[in-house]
Design a protein around this nucleic acid. Structure first.
Lengths: 232, 232
DNA sequence: AATATAGGGTGTATTTCTTACACTATTGCT
DNA sequence: AGCAATAGTGTAAGAAATACACCCTATATT
């Protein structure tokens, strides 16, 4: 094993699946490619990992170059290694995902590499044709967040810092693709005691303004070694 | 991207974390290495992925060559890419795990490659020093099976085809490292209605023989889109 | 000023699940 | 016959999940 290092032609990339939530629907961040293969197609932000950087570092750098987003914590999802996934040969990719507050970012997305024309949010339910196996990667990510959202408070990462209970409920409904009962949802959510009720109300709505809440990370950390379950 | 394929020095391997259960404890399958680096150390079965095979195929081939085990379904766990994980440079590894019936295999483990001296089961609670970052990989695998065992019936993969309820309970206790109440465990497990009670009893024990059960995959598939939860 | 609209906010009864807890039954061995 | 070792069993209390419908309030409209 020492002397002969085989297969030097194997190389690998990292791809980012970034979820956002606005207007009651889940969105994913895509880039329009400016390079072959799949020039002018939409795809996930993703590129080659340098040989002297960790995959965790690479994926951050790539996201920054492709979209201008910085300081996003991404988690590893899965490594895809089908022989046909890349038209130029055996290139495996390590996919990462993250969920983030779309409000804070909006359309302020600025690629800084010629490989990318632009970056844009796309509703999950209306995705364009995607480069490589990227649709497959996105589907696997959704499975992952559905499983994860049942026992950890990742959903809050998708909301603005201050949110109403209805927004929170809509988010869970979007993730699960399923209506929830308002009273039961609120009862359950408030009982977990991980929200901080603010002295503020929604503004700019033409109906009774709802109270605003914050996710209280300190309370959460104290209380939960346990599990949350918001799936029903 | 088309013309310049960078970083041709990147290569990758696949590692196998195989769990077994016997004598009331969880075990993991290790090999004694016969090659540098880490010659004569214990480590996970693992080797380079060929450039013309999928990772899924590679990991099966490697397990066969290192241990003689065949037809084991492994699931991908995580990809490890720290720069220091391999003394010979940037070699990422895709780790897979599986759980299997130790009884059926016992110590009938036959490496067929010179890279490996022998393969052997080791209790999880008394592991030797391990090559590379293999201890870290094993720990991550345990986290994974703990999470997974709560909502899918993977535990049955560790038991013989016919087992007693006490054996099943001991397995959950080993996975959770926690005692469970016998009556509550049985009540809950039988209520899921995924076991088939056999007309057979345990043999060769010097006390009252227990009924044998089988996991009934057909019933399971019918009933569960839902979740199992055996963690309490 | 009155009314319409749109979502905000709330409680209760029923069923199901979880938990805590201790004794009798059966078998093999001596 | 008696012992040792594990199998096997039920109930009561509390907690959690579910199903379900109406009044409240802020704004916009006439």
């Amino acid at each position: 094993m020492q002397s002969n290092l085989p297969h030097l032609q194997s190389i690998f990339t990292a791809d980012c699946v970034i979820f956002g939530f606005s207007e009651g629907e889940l969105k994913v961040l895509l880039i329009e490619r400016n390079e072959y293969p799949f020039k002018e197609w939409w795809g996930l932000p993703g590129f080659f990992v340098e040989h002297n950087e960790t995959i965790d570092d690479a994926v951050k750098r790539i996201l920054l170059e492709h979209t201008g987003l910085k300081g996003i914590y991404m988690e590893q999802l899965y490594t895809f290694g089908d022989l046909q996934r890349h038209p130029q040969g055996r290139i495996i990719t390590v996919a990462y995902y993250a969920m983030l507050r779309l409000e804070a970012i909006g359309n302020n997305l600025k690629p800084s590499t010629d490989y990318v024309r632009k970056a844009q949010w796309h509703p999950l339910n209306h995705l364009p044709d995607l480069a490589f196996d990227h649709r497959n990667i996105i589907e696997k990510s959704i499975d992952k967040i559905r499983r994860k959202v049942s026992h950890s408070p990742i959903a809050f990462e998708l909301l603005p810092e201050k949110f109403t209970l209805t927004q929170l409920q809509q988010l869970y409904e979007a993730i699960w693709d399923k209506k929830l009962d308002k009273r039961n949802f609120r009862k359950k959510m408030l009982k977990y005691n991980i929200l901080k009720e603010l002295d503020e109300k929604q503004k700019g709505v033409s109906y009774r303004a709802a109270k605003l809440y914050k996710f209280d990370k300190r309370k959460y950390n104290k209380i939960f070694k346990n599990e949350l379950n918001f799936s029903k």
